[in-house]
Amino acid sequence: MTWFTNNYSDESQRFGSPFGHWSFCEDENYFDDLANVPRDAAVLSLRPTDCNWDALASLDALEEVTAAGLTKPQLKCLLGVKTLKRLRLWNMRQVDFTGIRQLDRLEELALFNVSGPKSLVDIAALPALRSLLIENMRSLDDWSALSAARGLQCLCISGGFVEVRPKVSSLAFLGDLDALRHLHVGYVNCTAAWPVFEGLARCAAIESVHVNSSSFSVDDMAYLDAIIPEEKQLEKRRHFVGGEDRQIATTLEAAKQLSGDRLEWEPRVKWQKDQPYTRRGPGKRDDVFAKLAAFEDRLHTVRDRVKQALAAGQSVREI
C-alpha cells in the first residue's frame, strides 16, 4: 500500500480538510459591534456576543464568514447576506437551513458540530456550491439529497474524533455527482449494503479518495481498490504493525522486516459487515503474521473478483 503525502494548504489543515481545495482566509476579523464593520469588508468572523446584527444587511462586499454558536435569529440575519461565497459554521444546535437557498453565490460551505437538519435538500439546491464539508452532523442519516448537488467538486463527510459517529445509510448518491473530484469519508457509522462505494465507480472526474477504514469492512475496502487506482487513494490506512522500534508496516512483507518477538496489529476495520471491529491486538510474531495473511488474502480475493465481474459486465453483487 502506498502512503500518500500531500502539501495541503494551511487553511485546509486548519479545519481538517483532507484535500487542499478550500480557499478560506486565515485572518480573523472580529467586531464586538457589527455596526463598526467597514462597508467594504470582505472577510468577517462572528460570535453570538456581537451586537447590531441588522448591520450585516449593509455589507455588500462581504464574501466570507466564520461563525460559532449563533442563535437562530443571528443565523437568519447571516443567511440574508447574499454576497457570501464562503461560509464556515461551528458548534450550533437545532439549525434550520431553509433560508440558505438565497445564497446563490455560495461556493464553499463547512459545518462543524452543527446539528438539527434532517435533510440536506436546501444545501444541495445551492447553485454555485462546489465544496462541502460536514463534520459531526449526528441529526442526519440520509444523505441522498446531495445527489442534486451536481456541481459539487469536493465532499467531506466525517465524524471527527467524537465517540458517537454520524450515520450514513447509503452512499449511492455519489454516482450522480458528475463533477466530483475529491472525496473524504471518515469516522462514520455506515450501514449501507455492499458494495458501499458502487456509485463512486461512475465518478469519472474523481482525482482523490480518502477513506477512514474503521468505518468500513474489508470487502468495502477491496471494492474501493478495484474501482479506484491506488495513486488516487490518499492515506487509506488498512492496518499497521509496530516493531520494537515502533516502525510501521502496511503489508505482510514489510511487517516481516520488523524486529521483535511481539508486534502490535491494528487493522481498524470490520472483517465482515455484521461482525465487530478488529481493534489493536498485541501478540506473538507468528500469530500477528497469520492475521495479516488472512486479512490480505480476503482483501485481494474480493478485489480480484470485483475486477473480473466488472470486466465481464456482471453484477458484483453476485460474486
Rank of each mutant, 00 (worst) to 15 (best):
A294M: 04
E207V: 04
R14M: 07
S147W: 02
C154P: 00
A68I: 03
T250N: 13
E231V: 11
A41T: 13
V162P: 00
S147L: 03
D33M: 02
R285I: 07
R238I: 09
T98V: 15
E108W: 06
E11G: 05
R298T: 03
L180W: 01
I248D: 05
E244L: 12
W22P: 00
L310G: 09
R138S: 07
G116P: 08
G313A: 12
N6D: 12
F97N: 01
C51T: 15
D176H: 15
L146I: 02
C25R: 10
K85A: 09
W194D: 01
A42L: 08
A312F: 02
A204L: 14
E207A: 13
D122E: 15
E108H: 07
E207P: 07
L252P: 01
A201F: 07
R93D: 13
V164H: 08
L132G: 09
L44N: 10
L59A: 13
L183T: 08
P276A: 14
E264R: 05
E244I: 08
V209M: 11
V43D: 06
V209Q: 09
F97T: 10
H21M: 06
A42I: 12
M92C: 12
R303S: 13
L183F: 02
Q233V: 12
W3H: 11
R93E: 12
R181I: 00
R303K: 14
Q94W: 03
E135H: 03
T2K: 13
R237G: 02
L126F: 05
G283D: 11
I157K: 02
A61Y: 04
F97K: 02
A193K: 13
I123C: 03
T191E: 09
S23D: 13
L59K: 12
N91D: 14
C190Q: 10
E28Y: 05
A293D: 15
V211D: 11
R237H: 10
L46N: 00
Q94E: 14
S214M: 11
T191I: 05
D122Y: 06
V316I: 07
A172V: 10
K167G: 09
L84T: 12
I134M: 15
P166F: 06
R86N: 04
F112G: 01
R47M: 05
P276Q: 08
C203A: 09
A293H: 14
L200T: 05
V43Q: 09
S12L: 03
K76L: 10
G99H: 12
P117D: 09
D220Y: 08
D225G: 06
L252Y: 11
A61N: 08
V196T: 15
Y30T: 06
D96E: 14
E107H: 08
P117S: 12
R268C: 12
Q233C: 15
K270I: 05
I227W: 04
Q94K: 14
Y30D: 02
I157R: 00
Q257P: 00
G20P: 06
N52W: 00
A145G: 03
N189P: 01
D104F: 04
S131E: 11
K232M: 15
L310E: 06
D274V: 00
G80H: 06
V164N: 10
R268H: 14
T71R: 14
D122C: 04
A57H: 13
V241Y: 00
W271Y: 08
R88H: 15
L109G: 05
